[in-house]
Nucleic acid binder design. Structure first.
Lengths: 160, 160
DNA sequence: GATCATTTGTTGAAGCATCAATTAAGTAGT
DNA sequence: ACTACTTAATTGATGCTTCAACAAATGATC
């Protein structure tokens, strides 16, 4: 604690107040993803990114998305998604089918088993999201958080 | 986009509005860490977690922290920190010394070279934090973001 | 319609994280 | 002092992510 007063910007930084906020963001997101990952892995055998892949597929028409759309939706590199989908495919939660319109493309389809796994995992995950985030904030605080982050990711809900 | 109307909670979920906010949080943090990681790796040859380790050390008395304190500060498992510090040590940015008070303990000390690397990396990193986050928000929005995340990580600034 | 550039998706190697198991030192109770 | 318990840190195997290189299809330009 001596160093907060001592030298907040011997390293070139933000204002002291901004720095406090920024630290809270880093720390909070780290804690949050840590808690969510643990819960999912423990109770459902899914990583957080696997869960998110399944969620996007569950919402897509025919539970199908092209690899590149899916990659963009979950903010993964194409390579990362290829590997992740490969693992999900081996577990039977997802299947790959060629894409009719574009012969380079690959459609990723969620299987019934994949949907069942997601359905089983969701309630516990939602409970954890509430416990770690939603229930710790007032409605107004949560709204403000969402609004701020929407400005950081300038396409949270644009759709097609 | 047909599915947003179709079934927002066939899988058990939050209110539609809460869900939008939550999605923004996920998407925003993913984009943000992605951008910050890329910038650091590209311009300074550091991962985001290496950078954070160096920052904490730079602020500590004698630029020294025990492994477990450092692990808690950056929200890493002890194992993860051991590996990460091992790599930083091989690059000469950090050194390990036995801890006098507790012979189980290990002190991690930042070297002058480590400090120099951090000093060189910091301005670009701060620029990126501003570009991706601070400059996209009003002061009030940023303050609200920090306040919300501080409630999620209930010890952002308690100190010793 | 032949060339060049771009986009899509995959691959394998290398690097990093996670997990369970281990060593060693401190703490508590008897 | 002896045993049992807890905490500190490390290790190595396994698994996930990243990166550069690639193949195949599409698009754009002349």
């Amino acid at each position: 604690m001596t160093q907060a007063e001592r030298e907040p910007d011997d390293v070139l930084w933000l204002s002291a107040e901004q720095q406090r906020h920024w630290r809270a963001v880093i720390l909070g997101t780290a804690r949050l993803t840590e808690a969510l990952s643990r819960q999912l892995e423990r109770d459902a055998g899914l990583s957080l990114s696997e869960y998110e892949i399944l969620v996007r597929l569950s919402e897509a028409a025919d539970r199908t998305l092209r690899m590149s759309e899916l990659a963009a939706a979950v903010v993964h590199s194409r390579s990362r998604l290829t590997h992740a989908v490969g693992r999900l495919e081996q577990r039977g939660l997802v299947a790959r089918r060629p894409c009719p319109e574009d012969r380079r493309g690959v459609n990723c389809v969620m299987t019934d088993e994949g949907y069942a796994v997601l359905e089983a995992a969701a309630p516990g995950h939602v409970r954890e999201v509430r416990a770690q985030l939603v229930d710790r904030l007032t409605d107004e605080e949560f709204r403000a958080l969402g609004a701020a982050m929407a400005k950081v990711a300038p396409d949270a809900e644009p759709g097609a």
